[in-house]
C-alpha cells in the first residue's frame, strides 16, 4: 500500500537572479513500512523535496501546477493544496515527523528537552501533561538514553552529539507518525555513533512499522538502511529501484560514477575515479539530461544534450533516466 505519492514535483525559487529550478519532475512513492533512500550531492534537490512534503520551503518557492503530493490512508490529503499553516498542523509533526542533520540547531537552547517533548504532544494529542511526560520519558528510554528521567529535565547543550540525535528521534516518534523524514540524520556524527543511530532507526522501524524517507549523500548509509533508493542529481531523479539492484547493477552513468568515486575498503589498490568536471551552478542548468556535461560515457552530439530522457524500466521496479535504446 502506498503511503505517500509524489507526482511530477517541480520546484523553483524566486531569486534576484530570476527563477532557479531546484527540483524538476520528480515522482516517487513510499510504501507503508518501507524505507526509501534519497541520495544525492549538494544541490541535487533532495532536502528541498523533503521540505516540500512538510511545506517547509520559504515564501519564495513556486510549485509547478502539475506537482502533486498525496498522503494516502484515510481520506487522501493533497499536501500542496493546504495553504494555511493551520491545515498543515495535523500533518506536520503529527502524521509526518522530520529529523534534521544538526540536532543542536533543532532544539530550542533555553528550554529543557523534556518541556519541548511535552509541548508537541500537547499540540498533537489530547494527553495531559503528566501522561505526555510519562510517554516522553518512556520514549527517551526506548532510544537508549540512560537515566531518562534526569535527562528529561536537562538542556540540549548537556547532551552529547549522539544523545541529541537520539532525543530528536524520540521526540519525532512520540506522536506515532506514519512517515518519518530523516534529513542527513547521521552526517554530523562520528562513525561509531552513526552506526548506533542507524541500528536504532532500523530497530524502531520494526517496532513502530512506520515508513521512512531517508535523505543522505552517503551511499554506504543507504545500503545499510534503505529498501529502495532514488538517486538525484541537479533536481532530477537519475535512477530509482531496489537498493540491491541499484547498487549492484547501476544502470545510470551517474550512479556508476558515484560508486566508483567512493573509496573501497575491500580493494585498497583500486584507483579513485572522480566524476569529471564540477557540479554546474543552478543558474546554468544544462539542457537535456542534466548530467550530460559530466557524463564520460556520452559521445559528443548525443541525444542527451538536447532531449530529456524518460524514466525507462530496466527490470521490474528499477528505473533509470535513459532512452530506451540504451537499456540493456
Amino acid at each position: 500500500m502506498s503511503l505517500l505519492s509524489v507526482e511530477n514535483l517541480s520546484i523553483r525559487f524566486k531569486t534576484d537572479e530570476g527563477l532557479i529550478t531546484t527540483v524538476e519532475n520528480v515522482s516517487f512513492d513510499i510504501q507503508e513500512g518501507e524505507v526509501l533512500g534519497l541520495v544525492g550531492e549538494s544541490g541535487s534537490g533532495k532536502s528541498v523535496t523533503a521540505k516540500a512534503i512538510m511545506q517547509l520551503n520559504g515564501r519564495n518557492t513556486v510549485y509547478d501546477p502539475a506537482s502533486k503530493i498525496t498522503l494516502h490512508g484515510g481520506p487522501d490529503i493533497d499536501i500542496l493544496s493546504l495553504k494555511r499553516e493551520r491545515d498543515m498542523l495535523p500533518i506536520r509533526g503529527g502524521q509526518i515527523s522530520m529529523i534534521f542533520q544538526e540536532p543542536m540547531a533543532s532544539f530550542a537552547p533555553a528550554i529543557t528537552v523534556g518541556k519541548q517533548m511535552v509541548e508537541q504532544l500537547q499540540i498533537h494529542t489530547t494527553m495531559s501533561k503528566a501522561q505526555a511526560k510519562e510517554l516522553s520519558i518512556e520514549m527517551l528510554d526506548r532510544v537508549g538514553i540512560t537515566e531518562p528521567a534526569r535527562r528529561f529535565d536537562q538542556y540540549v547543550f548537556e547532551f552529547s552529539g549522539g544523545m541529541r540525535q537520539r532525543a530528536m528521534i524520540a521526540m519525532a516518534l512520540t506522536t506515532k507518525p506514519r512517515l518519518l523524514i530523516a534529513d542527513e540524520p547521521t552526517t554530523a556524527l562520528d562513525v561509531t555513533i552513526q552506526r548506533q543511530v542507524i541500528d536504532l532507526m532500523k530497530e524502531l522501524i520494526g517496532d513502530f512499522g512506520m515508513s521512512i524517507l531517508f535523505i543522505t549523500h552517503d551511499l554506504g548509509v543507504i545500503a545499510q538502511t534503505a529498501d529502495r533508493v532514488a538517486v538525484m542529481y541537479l533536481g532530477r531523479i537519475m535512477e530509482q529501484g531496489a537498493v540491491r539492484d541499484v547498487l549492484r547493477t547501476p544502470a545510470h552513468a551517474y550512479t556508476r560514477g558515484l560508486l566508483n568515486a567512493l573509496p573501497n575498503l575491500d580493494n585498497l589498490d583500486a584507483p579513485l575515479t572522480p566524476i569529471p568536471g564540477d557540479i554546474p551552478s543552478p543558474l546554468e542548468r544544462p539542457s537535456g539530461c542534466v548530467f550530460h556535461t559530466r557524463n564520460p560515457e556520452l559521445a559528443p552530439g548525443s541525444r542527451y544534450e538536447t532531449e530529456i530522457p524518460p524514466m525507462s524500466e530496466i527490470r521490474p521496479g528499477h528505473f533509470a533516466a535513459l532512452f530506451p535504446e540504451d537499456v540493456q
Binding site: 562513525v191 561509531t192 552513526q194 552506526r195 542507524i198 541500528d199 552517503d218 551511499l219 554506504g220 548509509v221 545500503a223 545499510q224 537498493v243 540491491r244 547498487l247 560508486l259 567512493l262 573501497n264 575498503l265 585498497l268
Partner: peptide, 28 residues
C-alpha cells in the same frame, strides 16, 4: 592496520563503516 587491527577502538571504528553491500551487515 586495516587487515589486522589490534586495539579495540580501531576495531570498533572499522566495524562501524557502513558497507556498500546491503547484505553485509557490519559486525558490531
Amino acid at each position: 592496520i586495516f587487515a589486522n587491527p589490534q586495539h579495540d577502538y580501531t576495531k570498533a571504528l572499522l566495524a562501524a563503516i557502513p558497507s556498500l553491500d546491503p547484505d553485509q551487515r557490519s559486525r558490531v
